[in-house]
Amino acid sequence: MRALIVDPVKCTGCRACEYACSFAHDGVFNPANSRVKVSIFLEDLTFIPSVCLQCDEPYCAEVCPTAALEKDAETGLVKYYKDKCIGCKQCVVACPWGSIKIHLGDKKVIKCDYCDGDPACVKVCPPKAIAYEELEDVVLNKQKAVAALYKDIVREMAKGVSP
């Protein structure tokens, strides 16, 4: 299963993801209506991107009285059906991540939809602070990266050791 993986350590705070996201959904550039959000903490020299995590037990869907939000087990997406939405905004309140927003134009709910499997944000992020990846690969890469930190030491220690 593929998912949007956010790695704040790599983020440069350029917000191209916000521009790409708003353009992909509205055809205009407006970070205020982006599904992705980069928080910039200038004094702490830190930039933190965030986007809907497509929870397995999504509070947004649980509180929705019209089933306008629904977890799709196959794709992993929490899907939003605009036509079912009555605009009660309970999902906005319920989401612990602040990833469900209200569009400033039509005042309807907006949330990340992975751009139908080809997320626009990913295409403009050369440092890969936001990436669309197979979860297994993400786990494997993390394991390898951690192991690589001490592989040289292990090689030294293994000298002369016969198992």
Binding site: V9, T12, G13, C14, R15, A16, Y19, L45, F47, V124, P126, P127
Partner: peptide, 19 residues
Amino acid sequence: LIRNEGCASCPIACGRVTE
């Protein structure tokens, strides 16, 4: 160097944040 800092929409991010 602590990290790179990018201006708006910049893929280069040459800016340095240092300590």
